Structures are given as C-alpha cells and as structure tokens.
Amino acid sequence: MSVPAFFSAHPLSLPSVDRSSVVGTLRAAGCVFAEDEAELLLSAARTPAELATMVERRAGGLPLEHVLGWAEFRGLRIAVDPGVFVPRRRTEFLVGQAVALAGREPVVVDLCCGSGALGAALAASLGPVELHAADIDPAAVRCARRNVADAGGEVHEGDLYDPLPGALRGRVGILLANVPYVPTGEVGLLPAEARVHEARVALDGGADGLDVLRRVTREAPEWLAPGGHLLFETSEQQVPAAVDAVERAGLVARVVEDEELYATVVIGTWSV
C-alpha cells in the first residue's frame, strides 16, 4: 500500500502525521464527526502503517468502533469485534433505569446480549451481581465473554432463554433484553454501517419489529423473581404494541423516555 497523503516525509514517526489531512480524508468520506474520529484513530494507532489501514477502513464505511476494536459505553471500553452489534449510546438510558430498579447483589440476565455491554455496564455500576448473558450469534458470544469477565459473568450461546441454566427460573431480578426491533422491510433503510457491518440477527425484528420481543415477554414470568423487572428498548411508534405484549404476559408495564437520547424504554414488572 502506498503511503497516504497525511504522512510527512518521515513515515516512521506518528508525530509526523498531518492531523488535518486525516480529518480531511474522513470528512470527504462522509464522517460527520471527522475531527473527533481522527483524534481517536491517532491515539489508537501504534505506527503510521497501522494508522493508514485504520483510516482506510473507516473511510471505506467500517463502523468506527469496529476499526478501533472498542466502543465507549457508560464510561467503559467495551470490546466490539467485527460483525458484532455496536452498543448505542441511547441504550445507556436503559442501563440507568435498571440501576435504579436493582436491589443489592441482584441476579441479572442480559438477553440478546451482543457485545455484553449492558450486563457489563450494569455490573460496573452496581458492584457484586450474579450475571448471565445469552446470544444466538457465536461471534457475539465470544466478544461478550471478554466484556463480562471482570464481573464474573457467564455467557451462554443459544436462542433467548434456551441456553440459560434452569436454576435461574424464578430468581432473575433484572432482565435486560436489547432485542432487535427494526421491521424486516426497514432493515434495508438502515445506515450502511449497521446494514452491512452488523449481524442481521441483531437488527431484524420481524414483520412489525416485535417478533423477538413477544417471545421474550411470553416467557419472562417464568424467569423473573417476584418484583423483578424486564427492560427493553423500542421505537416510539411501537410503544402501544410493545406495552400490549408486556401486559398479555401478566407484567405491569410502564414507559420511560429520554428525549435528548431519543430513547424509549418499556419496563415490565412481575407483580405476584
């Protein structure tokens, strides 16, 4: 590969990199936050050649988090491997709601865990937890195991509740379910960063976007402890149908929103 224009005549020294040229390359590729991204790439690269590769991959449309190998989420650096769903900043609101609801040393399950960001962030905020996570995507499972290791969490590979230990039934205080909720017909309208570079299973929620959610809510009462909570994101338009699914399962539903983050979270409480 030829040396890109953003290097000076001294290619072996990172200080010789022309930062403005890196910014210009990213901006020309359509990166809205080109200056911030340039700083991250410059700080992450160990050699000019590595930086050149990273800039090329980012300018080619790879998500910044996949280029860096991590995403910031509630102050943590969450490892994000190629193809794994990138945790969204708006989902920090969901974790904050879970923190407020959790008791001491709760049993936590993170379904459709992706990178494991939600469970890891919750554990980091609460301290000791019994943490289990599950995902159907083997790449996500491998990634999540790295992210929940510090919390002593276990990550299980399989479809929703299927791989969870039976001993968790009736004991879960916080059930996080970051389910896919994009309607099948709208997946093609997503930004290329998601549509091309993230697993479809992490995005496609079926005809109306709520197929996976309905499966989660139906079985939730079997796993929740009395007073336990199910939390998930949805779109504003999907709220009525999502609340209906929660209530049909016998849970008490409420909706909380954060306008600044464009986040809508439904909370279902198992009140018996």
Results as ranks from 00 to 15, higher is better:
Pro4Ser: 04
Phe7Asn: 09
Phe7Asp: 09
Pro11Ile: 12
Ser13Glu: 15
Ser16Pro: 00
Leu26Ala: 02
Leu26Cys: 01
Asp36Glu: 13
Ala45Glu: 07
Thr47Arg: 10
Pro48Asn: 14
Ala49His: 07
Gly60Thr: 00
Glu65Phe: 00
Arg74Ala: 14
Gly75Trp: 07
Leu76Phe: 12
Arg77Ala: 14
Val80Ile: 08
Phe85Gly: 05
Thr91His: 07
Glu92Ala: 04
Leu94Ser: 11
Arg104Lys: 14
Val108Asn: 11
Asp110Gly: 07
Cys112Ser: 09
Cys113Met: 02
Gly116Pro: 07
Ala117Arg: 08
Ala121Lys: 04
Ala123Ile: 12
Ala123Lys: 12
Leu126Asp: 13
Glu130Ile: 04
Leu131Tyr: 12
Ala133Arg: 02
Asp135Glu: 10
Pro138Ser: 07
Pro138Trp: 05
Ala140Met: 08
Ala144Gly: 09
Arg146Phe: 06
Ala149Phe: 08
Asp150His: 15
Gly152Glu: 13
Gly153Trp: 10
Glu154Phe: 03
Val155Tyr: 11
Glu157Met: 08
Tyr161Met: 06
Tyr161Ser: 05
Pro163Trp: 09
Gly166Thr: 11
Ala167Asp: 12
Val182Thr: 10
Gly188Ser: 14
Pro191Thr: 02
Ala194Tyr: 10
Glu198Gly: 03
Glu198Asp: 13
Val201Gly: 01
Gly205Arg: 02
Gly205Trp: 04
Gly209Pro: 04
Leu213Lys: 01
Arg214Lys: 05
Thr217Met: 02
Pro221Glu: 09
Leu224Gln: 05
Glu236Ser: 15
Ala245Ser: 11
Glu247Ala: 01
Gly250Met: 09
Val255Met: 13
Tyr262Gly: 13
Thr264Cys: 15
Ile267Trp: 00
Trp270Cys: 08
Ser271Phe: 00
Val272Ile: 03
